[in-house]
Structure formats: structure tokens, C-alpha cells
Amino acid sequence: MTMMKSILVVVAVIFCISGSFSQTGRIIGGDSASAGQFPYVVSITEDGRHFCGGFIYSSRWIVTTASCLVGKSLTRLNVVVGQLNLLNADINEQTMAVYTLNPFPEYDSTNKANDIALVRLTAEIVFDYEYVDFIEYNNEVDYTKEAITMGWGVTYEAGYEFLYLRYGAVRANDYATCGPFGNEEFDPTTMICAAGTLLSELPAGTPCTYDEGSPLVQEFTDPSNESLRITTAIGVYSKTQICELGRPIVYTRLSLFGSWLLNTAGPQPHRPQDSR
């Protein structure tokens, strides 16, 4: 089968800034992902153990949160791509060594402001051509429809990372949902506020510990081809107050950091229009 470098998708951000936000909890609801359903999602490991998520920006670059990388030594980190099961190797799985850690220069570890980072790999990712189904597409959050969040986060209070990738639907909300936390904890210009929703045919879910850095995605219509739907990362999971369905979730708004991503990692590659 044809092989190609993996590619993806970017745009938007959501993040939550509060030292009081809980680090325990669980992904409420959701469902198990199938092989190849989210080929852009990666697991970031320390000494072989998953601790954060991320997504493929290009064949050498991964997007995650800066909070995931604080205090970490790159020699102890790896990025695992093409993975579904944390325990057993998957058919497209590759474990990549890390070359550099690149947190956003203005990241504030006190309040988690500007919680975004890039990880540069030592070698290029190579995927089966049919395995990759996403490209870069620049658009803003659509508040009228659900978005999808995914990861290997804990499934019960104070638990361990889950062995299988799971996903769930959330809906972006207005400032009123996260506003009670105060302007220092939630800034609607740099963050996306969302909550797990039961108003969708998709399974609702709420991310928590070990899901940090994983993408929030929506589908948009390609302006050059209205029949083509483009899956786009609009945010990266930063924090939630309590890991319960309906509670506010905060993502870093990727659209705000487009220039930094471009200047640091270069442009994303594009796949042929007929590759779907």
C-alpha cells in the first residue's frame, strides 16, 4: 500500500487557567475509538508510560500543551503515533524520539495562560496512506454544533490512564459557563469553554487527567470543494474544574497561535483532494 508522511489539521485553542482546577477525575461517558478513527492523535510518554496527549502537526512536529512539558527531560520522553491500545502494539504504531521541546514563550505556569507547545521529533513519521485522513484547515469554532474530544485519560476517580483510546462529544459554550471562575482563570479570547453534551447522537464525554494536550476537533466544509469535509483541530485540552459530564472544560484556542505555529514548525503539508 502507498505510504506517506502523516499530516493534520490546526486551528483554535482552549485553555483553562486555575491552579485550583482538579487533576483527578474521569472521562465521563464517551465510547471506544476504532482503528484509524483518529490517526492524528498521539501519546506522549515518559519512561514508557503515557502521561499526555497531542496531535500531529506535520511529519516532524507534534502539538500539545506547555503544561504537559514543564519540568520534563526530553531524553526521557517519546511520542507514540498510530496507537489505539497502550498495552499492545498496533499495526501502524511508531515510537518516536524527541529532538526539542518548544513551549510557547509567554506560557504562564501559574495560571496556565498560553498553554500550548510544540514537540519536534528526531525523525519523520510515516503512515500508511489510507490511515491518514486529515489535513490542515484554518477555521474558527462553530458554536452551533458539537466537537469531538479524545484521549487515554482516567476512567475513575484518581485512577490510571485508560488502555484504549476513547472519545466523546462536547459543545463549545459562551463565556457564561466558564465566567464564574473569573477573568484570571478564563479568558474567552484565548480559550474555548466547552462541556460534555447529551444533545447529540454522538456519545458525550468529559476529558480529565492524562487527556491534557489532546485535540478538540470539528468538521468544516472545504471552501474550494463544498463536498469535502475537513476535520480540524480547534483546541488542545488544558484543564477542567471537575471531571463530570456537563462541567466546563477549557481548551487552548488554536486559532490565536497560528502565526507562532507557522513560524516555529513551518506550514502543514497537504494531502491530495482525492485521498479520502
Rank of each mutant, 00 (worst) to 15 (best):
D108L: 07
G246I: 11
P272H: 06
T65G: 02
Q37D: 03
P248S: 06
L199S: 09
L87Q: 10
M96W: 01
E184K: 08
P188W: 00
D128W: 05
S275N: 11
R253M: 10
V250C: 07
Y175M: 05
T144G: 06
A265R: 00
S109H: 10
E93M: 09
I14M: 09
E212H: 04
S214F: 05
T240H: 05
E146P: 02
T231V: 15
D115E: 05
L86E: 03
L199W: 03
G153D: 05
Y160M: 09
G54W: 01
T231K: 15
V80W: 03
H50R: 08
Q218V: 08
V79T: 02
K145G: 12
S238K: 05
I234R: 13
E184N: 06
L254E: 13
L228C: 10
R229E: 11
G25R: 07
A158N: 13
L84N: 01
N114Y: 10
V70D: 07
F220C: 09
L254C: 11
A33R: 03
S43H: 06
C178H: 01
L77M: 14
F127Q: 13
V10E: 06
L101Q: 07
G258N: 14
G151E: 04
V141F: 07
F162I: 01
Q218M: 10
M191N: 13
D47A: 12
G53C: 04
T2N: 11
L121M: 00
G205N: 08
Y129G: 10
T75A: 11
N183P: 05
D108V: 10
R76L: 08
S200Q: 00
S275G: 00
K145Y: 07
Q23E: 13
L101H: 04
